[in-house]
Design a binder for these strands. Structure first.
Length: 505
RNA sequence: GCGGCCGUGGUCCAGCCUGGUAAGACCCGAGCUUCCCAAGCUCGUGACGCGGGUCCGAAUCCCGCCGGCCGCACCA
């Protein structure tokens, strides 16, 4: 994809209603995007695909909990204290620094977790000044990336917009475990909005202040980190970017099969490896090419406060380089222990076979939806010659079939509208278009990735047949109208090859 | 937050320096034409980010704000 194509793609995305800048008529706001009608449909299709894997395929339980969360919850989870950076600002030039990094650079001292007062003291004692302009620093302050609000009118009860959906799942652990009738491993998912008050959002859809996440929490017995279906993925190839290679400044990827990665302890256990493989399958499923997928091992300094091993799935993009789209974190028993302690509830699980209680460990595959959405657009957009085609996977396409009258006369439009109605009645996302010429309509359909177009012509009036045109090849077949919904559905599910769908033209 | 650049119909932009109410391309809509891949013709809708200032008069000059892009920093 060239620079021109990138620009064209973003133009198209705006023009055709995939994404729009939010709050536009009031001047806009950084870090927020609206999904237009097509974007909304495509986003739902991505979510559906994810749900098919996790809820349908893996049998995970889905819940939906509030985005607004009381202080105690996020205090217990560590977010109030750790979802934050101690920052200092230069009083002269305004440059902002993370206090811990600044002190480490200047003095070698590790003041991580020592509190603002201590950091303030070190900065003062050692006379640390602004590396940019040698100016004096102001007070050390915490910048917490959570949006804070008050629950109830005039209330002193503090709440936050959740920074992740995961906490809602941990909170419900007792009920969920009972619902699952005490079976481990137990998987739970939640899809919804999360919020992070980024200091300076950039890069379009890549850094948002409000975004949709799809998170899964896998609860398991730490003494038994086996996955019952591991053999299904044992031979999946994974491209790993190991922490040691990153530190050495080496871009090299290590290709392994899931099984070997576990045997060699490159990946901590079967469960983690299983979900890396599943993540890769999901990304391939939405149309990301294998060579554009890698798994980056986070080094200890990068990991979140709750994690002991984390793998990020990354997608290579032309515009932003490698983009993190999924984080797979080993959260151990951190959350359950924290919430048990803070709430006074027993959040352990009784394991029948062992006749004892254990606190489950958790592996969390956490997916962003907006970032893959962008990546899908970028990887799908092609221009060959004069044609511009969004080569979306059929199940992601916001419109499945365009319905056109070949000409706007002789009763063809009326007949085409009938066809469109019939398809819609069959729950196919069909769209009637009669403007301009048929060529223009094909072109418009290609631009938004509509896989098939049906055209009603004069022959239709005689023998009740229509043509179906394939997006990628522009080839056509002729089929009987009454078979149309059925044939289109088969085509959309890739059950029959296009040439076999009807009489080739 | 800082520095540089920028903000004009749906989209991309010209005009700004040298103030005198805005042009083009594409798109979109109506019609003509048209028996299958953005043809052509006619007509049409539609814009100066917000606020203030200077001026007889501001898209244009000045100030403030908001937004965007790039770089720095940040990204648990």
């Amino acid at each position: 994809m060239t620079k021109t194509q990138e620009t064209e793609l973003m133009e198209m995305a705006k023009r055709r209603g995939f994404i729009w800048p939010s709050f536009e008529i009031y001047g806009g706001a950084a870090g927020f995007y609206d999904f237009g009608p097509l974007g909304s449909a495509m986003k739902n299709n991505i979510i559906k695909k994810w749900r098919d894997i996790y809820v349908c395929g893996e049998g995970f339980l889905e819940i939906d909990s509030p985005t607004l969360t009381p202080h105690e919850v996020l205090k217990a989870s560590g977010h109030v204290d750790h979802f934050t950076d101690a920052m200092v600002e230069c009083k002269k030039c305004g440059s902002a620094f993370k206090a811990t990094d600044l002190i480490k650079d200047k003095t070698g001292q590790d003041v991580e977790g020592l509190g603002k007062e201590k950091m303030q003291e070190v900065i003062k004692q050692d006379g640390i000044r602004c590396p940019d302009c040698a100016g004096e620093f102001g007070e050390v302050f915490d910048f917490n990336a959570m949006f804070k609000t008050a629950i109830g009118p005039g209330s002193k009860r503090v709440g936050y917009l959740r920074p992740e959906t995961a906490q809602g799942i941990f909170i419900d652990f007792k009920r969920l475990f009972r619902h699952a009738r005490g079976k481990l491993p137990m998987g739970v998912v939640q899809i919804g909005k999360g919020y992070r008050n980024e200091i300076s959002p950039r890069q379009g859809m890549i850094r948002l202040r409000e975004f949709t996440m799809a998170e899964a929490e896998v609860f398991f017995d730490p003494e038994d980190p086996k996955h019952p279906k591991f053999s299904d993925v044992a031979h999946d190839h994974l491209n790993l970017w190991l922490s040691k290679d990153q530190i050495a400044g080496n871009e090299k990827l290590t290709e392994v099969v899931a099984e070997t990665a576990v045997d060699k302890k490159t990946i901590c256990n079967e469960i983690m490896a299983y979900y890396l493989a599943l993540t890769q399958r999901f990304l391939l499923g939405i149309g990301i090419p294998p060579a554009a997928i890698r798994f980056r091992e986070q080094n200890p300094r990068q990991r979140a406060h709750y994690s002991s091993e984390t793998w990020d799935a990354e997608i290579l993009t032309e515009r932003f380089g490698w983009v993190e789209v999924t984080g797979l974190a080993y959260r151990s028993d951190y959350d359950l222990v924290s919430h048990a302690k803070a709430s006074g509830e027993d959040l352990s699980a009784f394991i029948e076979e062992k006749k004892k209680k254990v606190v489950c460990h958790v592996i969390e595959p956490s997916y962003g939806i907006d970032r893959p959405f962008y990546c899908v657009l970028e990887h799908s957009y092609t221009t060959d010659g004069k044609r511009k085609i969004l080569k979306l996977k059929k199940d992601l396409a916001p419109v499945k079939v365009g319905v056109f009258p070949l000409l706007n006369k002789d009763g063809l439009p009326e007949k085409a509208i009938e066809v469109e109605k019939a398809l819609k009645a069959d729950c196919l996302a069909a769209e009637y278009d009669a403007s301009g010429t048929v060529g223009r309509r094909y072109s418009r359909a290609d631009e938004i990735g509509t896989p098939y177009c049906v055209t009603v012509d004069h022959q239709t009036l005689q023998d009740l047949t229509v043509t179906i045109r394939d997006r990628d090849s522009t080839k056509q077949v002729r089929v009987e109208v009454h078979e149309l919904p059925c044939i289109l559905k088969s085509l959309l599910r890739d059950e029959i090859p296009f040439e076999k769908a009807g009489k080739p033209i």
